[in-house]
Simulated assay, not measured.
Amino acid sequence: MSDQYPPQNPDGHQPQGQQPSGQPGQQPSGQPGQQPYGQPGQQPYGQPGQQPYGEPGQQPYAQQPYAQPGQQPYAQQPYQPQQHVPVGPDGVPPLWAPWYGIGFLDAFKRFFAKYARFDGRASRSEFWYWILANAIVTIVLFGGFYAVLIGSLVSSTRVDAYGNPSGDAAPSPIAFVFLGLYGIWWLGTLVPNIALGWRRVHDANLAGPFWLIGIFVNVAAIVFGVLESNPAGARFDRPDLG
């Protein structure tokens, strides 16, 4: 007798209900109606119709920007120092303190109110409004001197029939009035001009003697005038002087 597997019936037929592995008619792993993994009809991970992580339409968490458009990230925001300036009941800072956002007329009056004060600070508006006021007065007085001087000389000169100039060539006394007023103005504002520049460099947290450079170098005076305020310049304030 020969060994056969699986055993056969004497008539040569296979046992009922048993099908050998791999024989025709045997279904692969998985019963009929069951779709094997990855076969048509089953959608595998990442195939069309399923949106994988990070695909268009879905923004992964790691790709989210820190700040939205129009918003500046915290690390890129410039530091804005805060100026703490006391004000009186009328909203005006005391003389020892700088006045940020001062107007033209107030800057003109404050310039003379702090005539020879080298302590404290002066804001950019205090400085440049006074420069504007000083320029206007200088043009009126010094320019008036030249205008009257030239006008009087021209009007007093006559030309005769032979083309020779004649007449009184003496300048008008009014011209010297303008010149005298300009001299008084220049002398009267010399000290407070230095004091204002001194306080201006204090506001940028620089020592006052730096302004001496600006007296002799006009470009340096302009640079000092446009420097931003530095809160550390409060070390030059003297509240005890009022």
Rank of each mutant, 00 (worst) to 15 (best):
S2E: 15
D3G: 15
D3M: 15
Q4D: 13
P7F: 10
P10V: 14
G12A: 11
H13C: 00
Q14H: 15
Q14V: 15
P15S: 11
P15Y: 09
Q16A: 13
G17V: 11
Q18P: 13
Q18S: 14
Q18N: 15
S21P: 14
Q23N: 14
P24G: 07
P24E: 06
Q26M: 07
Q26R: 09
P28R: 08
S29H: 10
P32Y: 06
Q35S: 13
G38H: 01
Q39F: 09
P40S: 06
Q42K: 10
Q42F: 07
Q43E: 07
G49D: 06
Q51A: 14
P52I: 05
Y53S: 08
E55D: 14
P56F: 03
Q58F: 11
Q58N: 08
P60A: 05
P60Y: 03
Q63E: 11
Q64I: 07
P65R: 04
P65T: 03
P65E: 02
Y66T: 08
Y66E: 13
P69Y: 11
P69M: 09
Q72H: 09
P73Q: 04
P73V: 06
Q80W: 10
V85T: 05
P86C: 00
P86E: 00
V87W: 07
P89F: 01
P93E: 01
P94F: 09
L95Q: 06
L95Y: 02
W96V: 07
W96T: 02
A97S: 02
P98F: 01
Y100G: 06
Y100F: 08
Y100K: 02
I102H: 06
G103V: 04
G103W: 00
F104V: 07
F104H: 08
L105H: 02
D106N: 09
F108E: 06
F112Y: 10
F112M: 02
A113E: 01
K114Y: 04
K114E: 12
R117Y: 13
F118D: 04
D119M: 09
G120V: 04
G120H: 01
A122T: 02
S125T: 12
S125I: 06
E126P: 03
E126W: 06
A133E: 02
I136R: 03
I136M: 07
I136V: 12
G144Y: 01
A147K: 14
L149M: 15
I150T: 13
G151R: 00
S152H: 07
S152P: 06
L153P: 08
S156M: 10
V159G: 08
A161F: 12
Y162D: 08
P165W: 04
S166F: 15
S166E: 15
A169K: 10
A169F: 14
A169L: 11
A170D: 10
V177C: 12
L181Y: 05
G183E: 14
G183A: 15
L187N: 00
G188D: 00
V191E: 00
I194P: 02
A195Y: 05
L196W: 00
G197A: 07
W198M: 00
H202C: 01
G208D: 11
L212N: 08
I213H: 09
I213V: 14
I213G: 13
I215N: 01
A220F: 09
A221K: 05
A221P: 05
G225R: 09
V226S: 04
V226H: 05
E228Q: 14
E228T: 12
S229D: 07
P231G: 00
A234R: 15
R238C: 03
P239V: 03
P239H: 02
L241A: 13
L241P: 12
G242S: 05
